[in-house]
Nucleic acid binder design. Structure first.
Lengths: 345, 345
DNA sequence: CTGAAAGCGCTTACAG
DNA sequence: CTGAAAGCGCTTACAG
C-alpha cells in the first residue's frame, strides 16, 4: 500500500504538501499549480488510496455510534434477510440506540473468507446469519476479537437467536391431521441451513406420529418455476395427495398455477401451508390466498439487539440463546387449526 | 468517548496493562488476576469501547480492499436493491476486483443524516441509490471527501447510471397501441424517485400521441393487496379498460386475483405489462404469466463498478452518465410487440 | 508557497 | 507481573 510519505519522496516535497494537495486544499493553501500537478500525477501513477484508519483517527475523532457488522448470505434467502435487516434498523431507531449497521454478504461455506481480520477489527460487534455446517465449524474453531451473535443457528459457544424450527415443521402436520388429511407432501428447495432440515424432519415425523401416510418429499431449486414443475409432477405421480407443506413462501406462490391447471379446489381437494418468509404480501391476495406459518423476523431482530447490548457492555457475560416462537396465519389455502381428538386417528 | 488512557488513570496502571487485559492477554502476559478484575470492572463501568480507527491503524495494517459504501433505501424497493447488490458483488467477484462492499440504509429524504462524515471517511468511494428530490438537493450542495456515484438519478455534478426511464414508460404504450388497444390505465404506488414520474408521464404521453384514450391513473400504496383493490375499482369504474401498465411487478402480481374474479381473459379481454423489477421469478409461472419491461440491474451494477474504477484511480476525471437500456419480455399477459403502421391510428 | 513536528488512540517489542 | 516508548499513516496548527 502506497503512503503519503512515499509520494512525498517521489515528488520531492513534504508529506504535508502531498496531504494538502490530495485533500483538494491547493488553492486555499496556495500550493503552486506545478507542484500540484506533479503530485497528483505521481499519486495517480502509484495508485495511492488513503489509509482509512489513519484518516479516521485524525479527522473523524471517535466514532459516533457502535458499529455492528452483519454477515448474511446473498442467495435466495435475501428476501427474508431484508425483513430481518429492517427489523434490526427499526429496533435501533425506535429505541434510540447508538448503533450503526453495515452489511457484508458472504457465500455459503465461505464465511471464513468474508470474516477477514481487518473487517472484524473495524466493527464493535458481529452478527452472523444462517451459517452453514462448515461455516459453523469455522466459527466454533475461532476466537474473535469482537462479540459475535448468531442468527438462526444453535451454538454453545456463542449467543444466538433461532426461529422455533421444530414448531415450524410440526405445526403444519398437526393442522393437516386435525382436518383429517391423510396424504401429506412437502416441497422444498435445497436446505441452506440446518433449520430447514429440522423443519422437514419434524414435519415428516409428526405426520407419521399422527397416523398420516409417510410424507412425500419433492425437491426443487429455489425458483418458483421449479416449484411449479415439481408440484405438477407430484400431482401426477401421487394424485391422492391432499395436503402440501412448502418450506418457502415463493415455492408455494410459484406452484399455484399447477392447481389452477388441474382444476384443484381449496380447501376441499387440497390444503396448502407455506413457511411465511416473504415480505411481499402477495400471499394475501393470491388465488387462493396462502395460509402460512408466520416467522416474526422483526421480533428475532429485536432479541438480537438485546443480546448485542448485553455483550457489548458486559464482555464477561456468558452466551445465551433465545427461541422465537412462530404463529399460524390461516387463509384460503388451509383453514384454521381445529384440534379434535377424533380427527387425530 | 473513553480511552485506554483514562481507564489506566482510573485503575492506576499503565495503558499497556489495560490494553493487554482488554485484549484477553492477561494469562499470556501473567497479569495478576486482581489487576485484571479491577481493570475490567472499571472499563465496563466507564463504558469503554475501542476506537476502531486506532485499532485498525495499528493492527490491521493497510486495508486489503477498497471499501465501497452503498447508501440504499430500505423500503418497498428493497427487492430491487437486492438484485442490484448481487449484481455489484458478482461483478467484483468475476473480475477479481480489490473491492469490498458495505451497505448502509437510509430513509428517503434523510440522506444527509445517514451520510455522516465519519462514515464517509471510512470508505474509499460512495454509491447513492435512488435519492429523492430533497436528497439530491443535499448532494448537489455538498462536497464529499470521496468519489460518489449515483444510481438511478440524473446529475451534472456526479457520475451516474440510470435506467432508461423514458423507454420504460413509452414502450408499454407502444406495444398496447400496436395491438390496437384503446383504453389504457396505469397503476402505481407513490413515486419514490423521479424516474417513476418520468415512466408514468412518458406512458401517458405516448398513449395519447398514439391515438389512445387518456390513460387512467390509479394510485395504491406499495402492497399487493392495495393493488388488488385498486384494480377491482378500476375494472368497475372503467370497464372499457383493455390494457394496464403496472409500475411495479408486485403490484401486477397482487392484481391478478381481480381478473380471475371478474372472469377476464388474457390477452383477449385485457393486456398487462409490468415493470420487471422483482427477482422472484413468480411472474414466470403466475396465471397469466406476466409480460414485463425487464430492468437489467446486473448490467447497471457492472457500469457502476466501471465508473467507480475510473473515479478511484483518476480522481481528476469529469463526471459521466450512462443510460442502461431495457428490453421487453412478452409472456401470456401481453403478446410480443408487433409494429404495424395501420394499428397505430 | 512549503515543511517540521505534534498528535489522534491504540498495540507491542523490549526492558526491568 | 508491569511500564516507557516507538510507531501505525495521516492531518493541521504553526513557523518561516
Amino acid at each position: 500500500m502506497v503512503t503519503i510519505k512515499e509520494i512525498a519522496q517521489a515528488a520531492n516535497v513534504s508529506p504535508t504538501t502531498v496531504s494538502l494537495i490530495l485533500n483538494r486544499k491547493s488553492k486555499e493553501r496556495k500550493i503552486s499549480p506545478l507542484t500540484e500537478k506533479r503530485v497528483l500525477e505521481i499519486a495517480e501513477r502509484m495508485g495511492y488510496l488513503p489509509n482509512l484508519q489513519a484518516v479516521g483517527l485524525k479527522k473523524a475523532g471517535s466514532l459516533f455510534a457502535h458499529r455492528i457488522l452483519i454477515f448474511w448470505v446473498a442467495d435466495s434467502r435475501a428476501q427474508v434477510m431484508m425483513r430481518f435487516f429492517r427489523g434490526i434498523e427499526e429496533n435501533i431507531e425506535n429505541n434510540h440506540l447508538p448503533y450503526e449497521v453495515l452489511l457484508q454478504s458472504y457465500r455459503p461455506g465461505q464465511l471464513q473468507h468474508a470474516m477477514r481480520n481487518e473487517l472484524l477489527l473495524s466493527c464493535h460487534g458481529i452478527i452472523v446469519c444462517n451459517p452453514s455446517e462448515s461455516d459453523m465449524e469455522f466459527l466454533d474453531g475461532s476466537n474473535f476479537p469482537r462479540p459475535l451473535i448468531l442468527y438462526n443457528r444453535y451454538s454453545d459457544k456463542y449467543s444466538c437467536v433461532v426461529m422455533d424450527d421444530r414448531t415450524i415443521g410440526s405445526l403444519p402436520a398437526e393442522i393437516f391431521a386435525s382436518h383429517g388429511r391423510k396424504h401429506p407432501a412437502l416441497i422444498t428447495s435445497p436446505p441452506t441451513f440446518n433449520g430447514m432440515n429440522i423443519r422437514q424432519n419434524l414435519f415428516a415425523y409428526t405426520c407419521q406420529s399422527l397416523g398420516m401416510r409417510e410424507a412425500e418429499i419433492y425437491r426443487t431449486d429455489s425458483s418458483p418455476r421449479s416449484s411449479y414443475e415439481a408440484t405438477l409432477r407430484l400431482l401426477q405421480e401421487r394424485p391422492e395427495t391432499d395436503c402440501i407443506f412448502y418450506l418457502r413462501e415463493e415455492l408455494a406462490l410459484g406452484a399455484l398455477r399447477a392447481f389452477l391447471e388441474k382444476g384443484i379446489r381449496f380447501p376441499n381437494d387440497m390444503e396448502l401451508i407455506a413457511v411465511g418468509d416473504s415480505s411481499l404480501g402477495i400471499s394475501e391476495v393470491s388465488s387462493p390466498t396462502l395460509s402460512v406459518v408466520h416467522l416474526p423476523l422483526e421480533q428475532a431482530a429485536s432479541k438480537i439487539i438485546g443480546l448485542f447490548n448485553r455483550h457489548l457492555y458486559t464482555p464477561s457475560c456468558p452466551p445465551a440463546s433465545t427461541v422465537v416462537s412462530v404463529n399460524y396465519v390461516p387463509r384460503e389455502s388451509c383453514p384454521a387449526y381445529t384440534p379434535h381428538e377424533d380427527c387425530i386417528t
